[in-house]
Design a binder for these strands. Structure first.
Lengths: 209, 209
DNA sequence: CGTGGCTTTGAAACATTTCAATCATCGTGG
DNA sequence: CCACGATGATTGAAATGTTTCAAAGCCACG
């Protein structure tokens, strides 16, 4: 989502939306529930995921501050959204958005959200097709680093979520991180804070990202 | 794409589009070229793919008769489109579509294409995350079977394209097909025609599809 | 009937997962 | 304040699944 579009919808969401706080691991909405409300991240992070019959849990997307989520193509939510840490979101009902901004503006919002989802999905696909475990982890860390600012990067995402997103097991993710560290590409302080030491090398590994 | 939407645009495309024939393996448009024309499949099959710096070739999508492709979110084509067999498409320039149907109708077309792409991408993601080789192949064959009619199914897609799409090597795909055959789930006649023998079993393998 | 492209098969190498155990980290209650 | 337990992360070793490399088979086409 570009800076302009973020600003363009700023008033609408700010006018209509009510700030809501969610605690870590709290569910924002569940798979199958009617999708009558739309959300925009203010702070914190949210993940969407889908529970499969066999217990696998493919992760859809991660949402950062400023991003809109909860809009669906159908009437119901196709995924579950959960807070990854304590977070604040602006919540607005579809009807309130229409009342305040009109049908056209809601459609525009839906359009932007859909385009962003499609772009994310394509990037995610590129990551999963024909990339090795360490390339996946490298791409992921590079992505997080690019979305963050500052040298020390806060990793809100736990190993299990990373693994689900990358199509790997938690152990493999862990090993790849260890490996990236021993080759001096990144450096972790604890398991949730890291620093990119060799940007060039990380980009090289992430390659076809 | 639903039946209704197909019909709704039928006139527009039929009025404006010019039928074009492409031979097997011919390029319809290339990655990076300006996306000024839109296409709808009449017969045959088309694949889109992206060539990566390292020579890998992730496949975007396969397009069947009736489906629209070539619309892009940006100004240029993000992928290359190639004919997988001799095929006929209706081609129309964006400007001609606007002249004939108006801006709104083109937007609607773009919306439908984007939604379909997103749904495909999500399904594709589900396939790649946490599915084993034989589950992937089973899902793929099931998908082809569902889109086809009749008992004997024509597989327009070669092994290499399947492998690229499924994130496997051509040898693995071949082995999985052999395996599905020996377990009596499907039966191949040559390498491009098959029949589903045990629908239930195939669905079981495709599972979380 | 041979040639070339695509598919299948085999064996060994390799990457990832699985299972099991150990290790941090962090919040809680003694 | 420290020990404790809980949760999540790391590590190791063996098992598994997939790829790689090499060779042979099949089929369509000239």
């Amino acid at each position: 989502m570009t800076f302009e579009t973020l600003c363009a919808n700023d008033d609408l969401f700010a006018r209509v939306g009510a700030p809501v706080v969610f605690a870590k691991d709290e569910e924002i909405y569940g798979q199958g529930e009617p999708a009558d409300r739309v959300y925009r991240m203010v702070s914190g992070m949210v993940r969407t995921s889908r529970f499969m019959p066999d217990g696998r849990r493919p992760i859809g997307d991660f949402y950062y501050p400023g991003e809109v989520f909860g809009l669906e193509l159908g009437a119901d939510h196709a995924m579950t959204a959960e807070a990854m840490n304590d977070c604040v979101v602006l919540a607005a009902s579809r009807s309130a958005l229409i009342a305040a901004g009109g049908e056209a503006e809601l459609k525009e919002l839906l359009w932007q959200a859909t385009v962003r989802d499609l772009e994310n999905a394509r990037e995610h696909l590129a990551l999963l097709v024909r990339k090795s475990a360490n390339e996946r982890v490298a791409s992921f860390l590079l992505g997080v680093a690019q979305r963050s600012q500052g040298v020390m990067i806060e990793l809100a995402i736990g190993r299990q979520d990373m693994a689900d997103y990358l199509g790997l097991t938690i152990e493999t993710v862990s090993r790849m991180i260890t490996q990236l560290q021993s080759s001096g590409v990144v450096e972790f302080q604890g398991c949730r804070r890291f620093r990119v030491c060799d940007q060039r090398a990380l980009e090289g590994l992430a390659a076809a990202a």
